[in-house]
């Protein structure tokens, strides 16, 4: 036993460090529930900011929803937006400070329900911003009500018998719609339920920030996520439920990877 303990002591030395929390993350304990995808995505954003060396040039916009307090965790300047208005706030910031890195961090209710207009028009203008979209198919902060992305049959606090298309309409695949807009440069859908997925999502977020630097148009990263509390499952069960139910409706992968469209395609003849 002591041999093992000695071995561990030998391994745990600064020169052997292979992973530690990014200094761009604050030490505050996150308010999220155990297993919440928000924490992972926050960490990935912080790591990208650290690796790109842009902590002093980045301004985040937090939404209304569980991630409203994102500003407590990532050590950059932040603005907290009204519900759904983060893309408009980001537009205001980016237009007056075009050389800064500006990103929004929004949930499905914020981005795809109350803020649909702001989302569409920011992307359609090709604002040089990054938009991070956490889609967990439920309203977490207000206690598990139906989201625009709630699946048909999914039970929530406001769809106690499951989402009914006759009553509630269909799950909104907003990311597919946004990929059609000429202002979008990079539109992708990722997840964070296992190490490989996490690494892919981090690459996508990094790419999104690099696209912003190149001023190629809007970079949009959806992360299909879990909400254990809202779904009333354990974090591990939530990941399984997500893979079985969310992924068929919200398939992973890049939906657009180019740059915003050439204006001449849309120009009048004379």
């Amino acid at each position: 036993m002591s041999e093992v303990a000695d071995r561990i002591k030998e391994i745990i030395k600064p020169e052997n460090l292979v992973y530690a929390k990014s200094p761009v993350l604050n030490d505050d304990i996150m308010h999220y529930c155990p297993g919440c995808s928000h924490g992972v995505v926050h960490r990935l954003i912080a790591e990208v900011i650290e690796e790109m060396g842009i902590q002093e040039q980045t301004i985040g916009i937090s939404p209304v929803g569980c991630a409203v307090f994102a500003y407590n965790y990532i050590d950059i300047d932040w603005q907290e937006a009204a519900h759904g208005r983060a893309p408009a706030v980001a537009t205001g910031i980016k237009r007056v400070m075009p050389d800064k890195y500006v990103f929004t961090y929004q949930g499905d209710g914020d981005l795809a329900a109350i803020g649909t207009a702001e989302t569409f028009h920011a992307v359609n203008r090709g604002e040089n911003i990054v938009m991070i979209f956490i889609n967990n198919a439920i309203y977490g902060m207000t206690g598990g009500q139906m989201a625009p992305t709630t699946l048909v049959g999914q039970v929530t606090a406001t769809t106690p018998n499951g989402r009914d298309v006759d009553l509630n309409g269909y799950p909104l695949r907003i990311t597919e719609l946004l990929a059609q807009l000429p202002g979008a440069a990079f539109v992708t859908r990722q997840s964070v339920q296992n190490p490989a997925a996490v690494r892919k999502t981090k690459k996508a977020i990094r790419k999104a920030f690099e696209i912003q630097a190149m001023k190629k148009g809007t970079a949009f990263v959806e992360v299909v996520s879990t909400c254990s509390s809202g779904w009333k499952l354990s974090p591990v069960e939530s990941n399984k439920w997500m893979e079985e139910n969310m992924f068929p409706q919200y398939p992973l992968g890049d939906l657009k990877d180019s740059s915003r469209a050439d204006a001449d395609l849309y120009r009048i003849k004379g």
């Binding site: 301004i59 916009i61 603005q79 937006a81 009204a82 208005r85 408009a88 706030v89 980001a90 537009t91 205001g92 910031i93 980016k94 237009r95 007056v96 400070m97 207009a117 702001e118 569409f120 028009h121």
Partner: peptide
């Protein structure tokens, strides 16, 4: 000078830029 998609968007663009 930017024409926004609504008055709601306008004032929140003002918020973002004023916050800067």
């Amino acid at each position: 000078v930017l024409q926004a998609e609504s008055e709601i968007a306008s004032i929140h663009m003002v918020y973002g830029a004023a916050g800067s």
